[in-house]
Design a binder for these strands. Structure first.
Lengths: 167, 167
DNA sequence: TTCCGTGCAAATGATTTGCAGGACT
DNA sequence: AGTCCTGCAAATCATTTGCACGGAA
């Protein structure tokens, strides 16, 4: 991840928070900076990372900042049921959508510019300015359909296929 | 909600679970039946509802069944940060997508058939069978952009605008 | 001088787990 | 026989909150 991009993301969040009555304290800046570097993390991972940089920052502050970020839609909390809940920067997902097999857990990340085009259109229709988006499709892959869609009660993260081909 | 549709949903879930080594016990059937009727619920609401129908079903069984449903992508758990986490049937979202203002919290439910068309195309490309989807756009509404995007640290549910007009 | 934000530690609350008994295969 | 599932109660673990202090507006 180029640090220029990180900087950009940080500034985008900073702007969102800073233009309000919410103070951009050094603690919060640090939390946001580390979060945008991670993209995916658990709360405790972020706590550990932030405290490595500055041990005086309290766990509660990290959680309180995460709550702020959730409120503004920058962060989403997901419970995938293996391990602790996962926090995700919505930026991370804005440019690859997900297709997941509910049987074997395979995840395909795909890109579809025409969807993004329609998103722009929708957003314009309602006079919004788009910041981020999430888009997930759930289904059955061919193999699972053929073997009768055996459900696997997962205790490990699903496999991930990143699709490089842009449609 | 026509009960025919509920029955259909129930059967879809039943099929998904039933075709595996996961037993479709009476307890699980009951939990699934109640869940598809709710569409949105908290875990405790579902527990209460299920136990109203059958007091012998344990809270743990409801949670364990919810976990199964999460695994197969039928249910998603969302933490909106006001009140307890919310469980949502992904069916519920398959036919209206969301546009949310990260500043004032307004939510617009919109429909865009052309997006669904593209989803079908993507799914076909990977030889998947589509079951459900989620699609959320985050941005700033016009009013909030004009007043400088004041962030509201919410402690109450956001307002909801259901858009009846199909694009 | 009034808010806002923080650290700390305790409290909360949702969810998970260990265990023993039953049912299904 | 062996695996899956259940209820119950206790345990766990992530997150939130009360409180008192410090700093910014």
């Amino acid at each position: 991840m180029p640090s220029k991009q990180l900087q950009e993301r940080f500034e985008q969040v900073e702007q969102l928070l800073g233009s309000s009555n919410i103070r951009l304290t050094p603690e919060r800046r640090l939390v946001v900076r580390r979060a945008v570097a991670f993209l995916h993390f658990t709360a405790e991972e972020l706590v550990k990372d932030v405290r490595a940089a500055d041990p005086t920052v309290a766990r509660a502050t990290v959680y309180r900042t995460l709550a702020l970020l959730q409120d503004v839609g920058v962060v989403e909390k997901h419970d995938f049921r293996y391990g602790p809940p996962n926090y995700e920067l919505t930026f991370a997902k804005a440019h690859h959508d997900h297709l997941m097999c509910v049987s074997c857990g395979e995840i395909i990340e795909f890109q579809e510019p025409r969807v993004e085009q329609l998103q722009d259109e929708v957003v314009r229709r309602y006079h919004y300015q788009l910041l981020t988006h999430t888009h997930k499709l759930y289904g059955l892959c061919k193999a699972c359909r053929q073997k009768g869609a055996k459900i696997v009660h997962r205790s490990a993260p699903p496999s991930l296929h990143v699709e490089e081909i842009v449609a």
